[in-house]
């Protein structure tokens, strides 16, 4: 009996180890294959020049880098104020039914598949202004709102009550206490949350397919079509040409570096836990 129980224990240990490695080995394989395949075209041309033409293989992905920067910038302009204020509301003022509704809504938004957010952006922006940086930025901004809200809320809730009370005891009005004392105290964590939200959307592809169109031109403004690094990876991966596959891998390496540096950098530097919804 004792031996059987030990056997079960040992075999479960083995199975557990197996499942962990089943999970980790593909990760290593992904990182390895992206480095190996990506280094072929990981040169200066990749990041300094746009594609030569729609049909030839030369050139880089400058148009996509500029596009990603513009789309993410628009996204942050949309999501930071709304997310920051809603975070303050949930941390400091939330009471009653309205607060419950808003809280449930934030979780709901986080769970909406990103492609549908893209379709939403299509129905209210692309239909009016055409495929544009604005539409893509709106979609990504919408997606990142819950992450900004959650990180702001948790950063503010972690402020020690004594610090707030010190402010109140000096007769400072509540909004000043929150904006200048609480937010000041929680500053680094709030900024870290912003960066994590940015990292969360920088690799988003699906909503961009239906909002910014792609193409090989460097976007000239808010209302012009654009391309983005993840979108280039998708389009080039589906193409039949080997040279474009190489560019897709190199773009993937670039995107992976950006995403991992932002994620790990912020989380290790500031000791912040990953946010799941």
């Amino acid at each position: 009996m004792k031996r059987l129980r030990n056997l079960i224990d040992k075999s479960y240990t083995a199975l557990a180890a197996c499942s962990f490695f089943i999970l980790v080995l593909p990760l290593l394989h992904i990182i390895g294959s992206i480095i190996i395949n990506g280094l072929k075209r990981f040169d200066l041309e990749l990041i300094t020049s746009p594609p030569k033409s729609l049909l030839s293989a030369g050139g880089g992905i400058l148009h996509a880098i500029v596009g990603t920067a513009m789309v993410v910038f628009v996204a942050m302009i949309i999501s930071l104020p709304i997310g920051f204020l809603t975070g303050i509301y949930l941390a400091e003022f939330a009471r009653g039914k309205l607060a419950q509704i808003i809280r449930a809504l934030i979780t709901t938004i986080a769970g909406i598949p990103s492609i549908i957010v893209g379709v939403f952006a299509y129905t209210i922006i692309v239909v009016v202004y055409g495929f544009s940086v604005l539409a893509g930025g709106f979609a990504l901004g919408f997606i990142s709102i819950p992450y900004v809200v959650r990180s702001t809320e948790e950063a503010l809730k972690a402020v020690p009550i004594e610090i707030k009370e010190a402010g109140f005891s000096l007769g400072i009005p509540r909004w000043k206490v929150i904006l200048f004392i609480d937010v000041g105290y929680a500053k680094s964590r709030i900024i870290a949350g912003f960066l994590l939200a940015l990292a969360r959307v920088i690799g988003e592809t699906a909503p961009l397919i239906v909002t910014i169109l792609g193409g090989i031109n460097i976007p000239s403004g808010l209302f012009s079509p654009a391309n983005a690094i993840p979108l280039v990876i998708y389009q080039y991966a589906l193409s039949p040409f080997k040279a474009w596959h190489d560019i897709a891998w190199s773009a993937a390496l670039l995107l992976l570096i950006i995403a991992l540096v932002m994620n790990l950098g912020v989380r290790y530097y500031l000791k912040i836990k990953a946010i799941y919804y």
């Binding site: 992206i34 990292a199 988003e204 995403a259 991992l260 790990l264």
Partner: peptide
């Protein structure tokens, strides 16, 4: 793994 963009 969660941090890897899905297109990759």
């Amino acid at each position: 793994i969660v941090a890897i963009p899905s297109v990759i």
